[in-house]
Design a protein around this nucleic acid. Structure first.
Lengths: 149, 149
DNA sequence: TATTAAATAGGAATTATTCCTAATTAGAAA
DNA sequence: TTTCTAATTAGGAATAATTCCTATTTAATA
């Protein structure tokens, strides 16, 4: 994510543009995976050794509350952050403890259709549906999957 | 859950039957919601003030690893426990910060069918699919929903 | 460039959880 | 029933993640 886009995102969220916030977003969007706060702090300190850990936590919370980034809860209960705010789901590779984004608009549609027809949920205003697929890469084919390293 | 059922569950899991384990399972199954470890410790201490907190954590971890109970990750990132091991999903009432069980075998089938046909997941051995529905009870009808108090 | 509310640094405090070790105990075997 | 032993527990210390506190700094506005 370019510096300009980062600045635009911060402005759109009504947040002041600070070097600390830029550093957090750069560290987060430069990362293909879904880093923890601690991962981000370490990444940031390689370049800006003077940014305080408390500030990183604070910035992450603000970014989540302003919906600039996402926060995900994993099977092993570690808080991770997600730069991608487009609607998507997560595939947990249970053997590798890795999270992969999974985009599928059609699936969203199927589930929403089904749920809105469900009597039990008549009185519920559905805001979001999240799907977590837990699985492993099949062994015999190791090395051929797009999810392999 | 009766004492006899609790004892049977522990035996089936290959676990010794101890008063501490019985207390944890009684506290967990007597609770309609999805308590945190701390909730359970407080509940247990009302009756057995001598059971150590560390022991409760240890027992909960053992029960989860033996699949006697479930562990759920919530939006506010607190670990909660679930006595029900039947396949089910969770409805998060975002205004009440409450979790409600949601059983729907048909939905499971629809999703599994769809996913197994998805090329992207060809190399993934799907172990489980969890759905989190996030929503609110509709306001005008408050008092008429089965999810209302 | 002056002003001020917002943001940050740095460290202490808090919270949830795990770890450690000695003492106890459940269940198997005699 | 009693004995034995590995498993379990108590109690508290240690750890890890996160929040809180307060003085200082700074970004954006006028």
């Amino acid at each position: 994510m370019s510096l300009e886009i980062i600045k635009t995102k911060l402005k759109e969220a009504g947040m002041k543009i600070t070097p600390q916030r830029i550093a957090v977003l750069q560290a987060l969007t430069g990362n293909k995976h879904h880093p923890t706060a601690d991962d981000l702090i370490k990444t940031i300190w390689k370049v800006h050794s003077n940014i305080s850990a408390g500030t990183v936590y604070h910035i992450l919370n603000t970014l989540v509350s302003k919906k600039v980034i996402g926060k995900i809860e994993t099977a092993d209960n570690v808080v991770r952050y997600d730069p991608n705010m487009e609607k998507h789901h997560h595939l947990y590779l249970s053997d590798k403890h890795e999270i992969v984004d999974f985009f599928d608009d059609k699936l969203n549609g199927i589930i929403m259709d089904y749920l809105t027809k469900n009597n039990e949920l008549d009185n519920i205003n559905i805001e979001d549906v999240k799907i977590q697929i837990i699985g492993k890469v099949r062994k015999p084919q190791t090395g051929t999957s797009k999810y392999d390293k």
